[in-house]
Computed example of a mutant assay.
Amino acid sequence: MATSKLFSPLSIRDMTLKNRVVVAPMHQYSAVDGLPNDWHLMNAGRFAAGGAGLVIIESTKVERRGCGTVGDLGLWRDDQAEAFRRITSFIRSCGSVPAIQLGHSGRKARSERPWEGGRPLLENPGIADWEDWQPIGPSAVGDSPAAIPRPLAREEIPHVIDAWGRAAARADAAGFDMVEIHAAHGFLIHQFLSPKANQRNDDYGGSDTNRMRFAVEVVEAVRANFPANKPVFMRFSAADGAGWEIENSVALAKLVKEKGVDVIDCSSGGIQGAVNTAAIDYGYQVPYAEKIRSEAEIMTMAVGLIVKAHQAEAILQAGQADLIALARELLHNPNWALQAALDLGIDQPFDLVPDQARWWLEKRAQVTRKLTPPDASVR
């Protein structure tokens, strides 16, 4: 085949990726007091060892009250930053680049883990700082009548924005080479963007420009506290089916590009579920990445039911995106990057993985190439 784009290097500021395969951030709900543990090391490590170019750690909260569940990761304290260093060092030792998503749940805070039901916690189950874990939002508009957030007072907003900046500085201290700002999926920044969730009548509500103000100022705070030679990504719900449309995302992308965002990670939905579940198909969000890339003239990352190597390669070859992010497909096969390299016929595919795996896998390939394919009788 022609030179693969999926397996060509990409440099953004001083960050260089060995390929365009990105591990999308996936909540694990397994932290204790915001601190990562062995589960997080194993989870991120298997993707790095599997050959992915960029490994993004799950949405890590910039404030304690921004935690969605008791198991959310955090960067609101210095000791949390130190706890991440073992993970960033291991990812880098595998030849991948460590990155982290910074988020705040806003009105989605104080909830059960998904496998516990995902419902809002309406009564204290014995959490010591329960009162400090109060859901907040731009307005007193909740996901349900039973869970109404406390609307932020105008004078509180700068303090929340500052928390993003402090978390970005800690991300740098922890060894991360990129931070992604989570402005999607119905969380706090998206709540400010949404005309449904944001019913303020001050300079953070009303017009499109006012509703974008919080997002833009978060970018300014992050960029001011994260080294200029390191890139910043931003995840959008490019369209949410609740009043925020792709044209709004193009406009926001242009604004945040001027403030120092390098890549838009293009997802959808979140304020009231998926945009249109009937329309979900393989690569269903790719058109968002293509439109924002073209009209805002900024690099984009495509994500959402991208499952095969040739599918990912075609998206890049067509100029629809610059990076390909996978989530559940990588949980199913942490070695997806290696398998994709084999499927695309990349030279020396086993160089993607650490020596401890490369040596054995090359031997396996040498042996299996000589064998007749097994039939159904082989067990």
Rank of each mutant, 00 (worst) to 15 (best):
residue 153 A to D: 11
residue 154 R to K: 15
residue 155 E to I: 02
residue 155 E to M: 00
residue 156 E to T: 11
residue 158 P to V: 09
residue 158 P to W: 02
residue 160 V to S: 01
residue 160 V to E: 12
residue 160 V to M: 09
residue 161 I to V: 15
residue 164 W to E: 04
residue 165 G to M: 08
residue 165 G to E: 02
residue 167 A to S: 15
residue 168 A to Q: 07
residue 169 A to V: 02
residue 169 A to Q: 15
residue 171 A to W: 10
residue 172 D to A: 15
residue 172 D to H: 15
residue 174 A to G: 14
residue 174 A to E: 06
residue 175 G to I: 06
residue 176 F to S: 07
residue 177 D to M: 13
residue 177 D to W: 01
residue 178 M to K: 04
residue 178 M to Q: 13
residue 180 E to D: 11
residue 180 E to H: 11
residue 181 I to E: 01
residue 181 I to S: 07
residue 182 H to P: 09
residue 183 A to M: 03
residue 186 G to I: 07
residue 188 L to F: 04
residue 189 I to S: 12
residue 189 I to P: 05
residue 190 H to S: 13
residue 190 H to K: 10
residue 192 F to S: 03
residue 199 Q to E: 13
residue 201 N to G: 01
residue 203 D to L: 02
residue 204 Y to H: 12
residue 204 Y to D: 10
residue 204 Y to K: 11
residue 205 G to F: 02
residue 206 G to H: 07
residue 206 G to A: 09
residue 209 T to P: 00
residue 211 R to N: 05
residue 211 R to Y: 07
residue 214 F to I: 00
residue 214 F to Q: 06
residue 215 A to V: 04
residue 218 V to E: 05
residue 218 V to R: 08
residue 218 V to C: 03
residue 219 V to E: 10
residue 220 E to D: 14
residue 221 A to V: 03
residue 223 R to V: 15
residue 225 N to Q: 09
residue 227 P to L: 03
residue 228 A to H: 14
residue 233 F to W: 14
residue 237 S to L: 00
residue 238 A to M: 04
residue 239 A to Y: 07
residue 240 D to K: 04
residue 241 G to C: 07
residue 241 G to N: 08
residue 242 A to I: 00
residue 242 A to D: 12
residue 242 A to K: 12
residue 243 G to E: 01
residue 243 G to T: 09
residue 244 W to Q: 06
residue 246 I to N: 08
residue 247 E to S: 14
residue 247 E to V: 01
residue 247 E to C: 07
residue 250 V to Q: 08
residue 251 A to Y: 02
residue 251 A to M: 07
residue 252 L to I: 04
residue 252 L to K: 10
residue 253 A to D: 05
residue 254 K to R: 15
residue 254 K to E: 14
residue 255 L to Y: 04
residue 257 K to W: 05
residue 257 K to N: 09
residue 258 E to Y: 00
residue 258 E to H: 11
residue 258 E to K: 15
residue 259 K to L: 06
residue 260 G to V: 00
residue 261 V to K: 04
residue 262 D to R: 10
residue 263 V to G: 01
residue 263 V to C: 12
residue 263 V to E: 07
residue 264 I to D: 00
residue 264 I to W: 01
residue 266 C to Q: 00
residue 267 S to K: 01
residue 267 S to H: 05
residue 269 G to W: 02
residue 271 I to W: 02
residue 275 V to W: 10
residue 277 T to S: 14
residue 278 A to D: 14
residue 279 A to D: 14
residue 280 I to Q: 12
residue 281 D to F: 11
residue 282 Y to T: 11
residue 283 G to D: 09
residue 283 G to E: 02
